[in-house]
């Protein structure tokens, strides 16, 4: 009985995921992504250099991935509270609800027990101030990635419906400099972050990649981990270390296309191949359903049905590629 309940719940969730993905696919034809990356105050030349390099890497990646993307990057003396506020205000004027908005903060942060602040040369910006600026942006799908020390302290201020918030630390009390940003950038460079091989790196995939690499860094160096990345995308719950069906986190992040790394989407939008695309989507749904029913099937039956569906899908893809 419990197994059946679980499967039903999973299928419901799967349907929700598919619905979100499908909605996103349609919208993405016209929508434009907005990316803002900020490398804050380094404090020391080493940090300054590192933060700037990471921000510049992201800048290149975003620009290369989508010619229509609106990419703004602040480093060095340009990275100030005023510049960031102006840019976010401008995006609030330009962005439409179907657009997506991504803000990535790299640098040092502080948390006094009540308020989080991102460190700029000159006046810092608080989590609340950031939230106010981002809340004015009409884009319904937003991602804020705060990779700084003490970034966990910003989650409460930043979270809201339709926004994914990722922080490098689980609380504001993890105050040591973080390495999460390095692996976040790696996630967008390394094709292996695209675990479902749909040629899109989602926010969830990037989070999982960076989180895993960060943990491996501390483990390999035999150092006590001083940062534990978290994610929240429901807008109302506690941020979590790992998303799953039980905690209900990850649905939005899984469907948020952070970076496109291939041409699959173009083919899907080609009217001449629409029938094949629909067939493909049907098969993908069939495979997903099979996977969620796996526990309730015999191993042989599962293998037989899955093999057949995968073969059909491969054939359809072959046709699409022609």
């Amino acid at each position: 009985m419990r197994v059946c309940d679980k499967i039903t719940r999973r299928i419901t969730m799967l349907a929700a995921v598919l619905l979100t993905c499908a909605t996103f696919s349609v919208r993405s034809a016209q929508a434009a992504p907005y990316y803002v990356t900020v490398a804050g105050l380094g404090g020391e030349p080493d940090y300054e250099q590192r933060f700037t390099a990471l921000a510049n890497d992201l800048d290149k990646l975003f620009k290369a991935a989508d010619a229509n993307a609106h990419v703004t990057t602040f480093t060095g003396s340009n990275a100030t509270k005023a510049h960031l506020s102006d840019t976010l205000s401008q995006i609030a004027r330009d962005a439409k609800p179907d657009d997506s908005f991504t803000l990535i903060l790299i640098g040092h942060g502080s948390y006094d027990g009540e308020e989080y602040k991102f460190n700029f040369p000159g006046p810092d910006i608080s989590g609340d101030e950031l939230a106010v600026l981002c809340n004015r942006i009409a884009a319904k799908r937003q991602l804020i990635v705060n990779t700084t020390s003490a970034s966990g302290g910003s989650i409460g201020a930043l979270q809201r419906a339709g926004r994914i918030v990722i922080a490098a630390t689980k609380t504001g009390t993890e105050k040591n400099a973080t390495v999460f940003a390095r692996y976040w950038v790696d996630a967008l460079r390394d094709g292996s972050a695209d675990v479902d091989k749909n040629e899109v790196i989602s926010a969830l995939e990037a989070f999982q990649y960076a989180d895993r690499k960060t943990a491996a860094f501390y483990e390999t160096q035999k150092r006590l981990a001083t940062e534990h990345a978290v994610i929240e995308d429901t807008g109302k719950k506690e941020a979590v270390r790992a998303t799953n069906a039980e905690n209900g986190e990850g649905l939005l992040a899984g469907s948020f296309a952070l970076l496109r790394i291939g041409t699959a989407q173009k083919a899907a939008n080609d009217p001449a191949k629409r029938a094949l695309s629909e067939k493909k989507e049907e098969l993908e749904q069939k495979i997903d359903t099979l996977k969620y029913q796996k526990a309730a099937m015999s191993a042989e039956d599962y293998k037989r049905q899955l093999s057949a569906a995968l073969l059909d899908l491969a054939k359809v893809q072959e046709e699409l590629d022609k």
Partner: peptide, 22 residues
Amino acid sequence: LLASLEAAPDYRPAQKLLLQMK
């Protein structure tokens, strides 16, 4: 190969190998 495609049904190289094996 099945394990690969189970994880990512749209993974092109794996799909091609599947067709090649068939």
